[in-house]
Design a protein around this nucleic acid. Sequence first.
DNA 1: GTCTATATTGCGATAGAC
DNA 2: GTCTATCGCAATATAGAC
Lengths: 209, 209
Amino acid sequence: MKMEDKDSRAKLLAIATDLFACKGFAAVSVRELTQQAKLNVSAVSYHFGGKEGLYQAVLEEQFRPIRESMETMQAQTPSTPIAKLEMYANRVTYIHGQRPYLSRFIMRELLKPTAYGGPIVERHLGEVYQFVMETLREGMEQGLFRQGLDVAHAAVSMAGILNFYFITKPLAEKMVPLGEDSDAKYAMQAFQLYLYGIVDSKTKGNENG
Amino acid sequence: MKMEDKDSRAKLLAIATDLFACKGFAAVSVRELTQQAKLNVSAVSYHFGGKEGLYQAVLEEQFRPIRESMETMQAQTPSTPIAKLEMYANRVTYIHGQRPYLSRFIMRELLKPTAYGGPIVERHLGEVYQFVMETLREGMEQGLFRQGLDVAHAAVSMAGILNFYFITKPLAEKMVPLGEDSDAKYAMQAFQLYLYGIVDSKTKGNENG
DNA sequence: GTCTATATTGCGATAGAC
DNA sequence: GTCTATCGCAATATAGAC
């Protein structure tokens, strides 16, 4: 068992993550990949069975924090729907911090699903949407939220207001001043904004943060 | 002047719009393009000077409604910041209705800007962000919105809550029940939600819609 | 495990006939 | 304006030496 074995695999995985995220699966060649890793062209086939196997390995690693977060969130049972939504908002921020490229992989799979990535994205995002919608339904039953709120649409709004920032960040920071610690600050204001938007004001004014 | 001239050009443009939107610039080959259009391989070079010229022509057409909307919005001077934001929300819905593929082209250019598309996207989205931020600043000066609101972040939230729906619609409608006339209904609720989120409730409760 | 060398396929672009 | 034929290049994958 030579040390180069694991090193080469890990190196390929790291460089593939960068390249696939920035250029997309089709636009990255095995040559480019192995040249950057200072390995032979055939290393990809040897370690991952080909370019597709390497991409699959990258995706699994990228989605790990989502998988773990969903398990955590489904295990706990926080007191109120609002606390659950806040936890979700915090997890979104945490996950994007842990995996800066994750939004890119998800967007690419939304635009053009691959055989392996498509189902992964669908399964994970499906679970997330179910969690948010279920939480919103709970809140509706408890009379916390505005009458007539469409929970399916409200779930998309929640996902949108939190994730769009991370998706468009590279471009947005060219055009609007985002400043220091922007990620956490954005998420906090966005969650407050969303909460003011859905909460029934005659039942509960939200004044934390 | 033969009829085939304009026909071939238009046919290529239409098919290229579909293919580039669905598969991306790099993943579409000139052969695939011309076979679907039932034209010769060399037609692309003849009419557009090459694959890149064709892509450029597609993008110009896709962005036309944004360009026109910005001119309309900058020409008019609606009474209040809130009316301006509402107009913006309506234009977003209208534009996505006019160009169902636009969000895909924008996302692709955000993920991997091309030489021609990158500047186009940057310029157009920059103008939009400037308009929203300026409108939010106006509202802040008039005391319409909550104290301490970060207008840069709030502008991203506005763009996110409106556009994310259109971006993820293909996937979202697999997982959440979106129903009939969903686009307009979504946009209306999202705008209301956003407004409740930013408006200073002690100054103005918003009860239209 | 890593290497070279090669087989095979597909790409965009274009010259030149019609 | 459309066609065929072809050039030059880059892609993935793999066989076989070390």
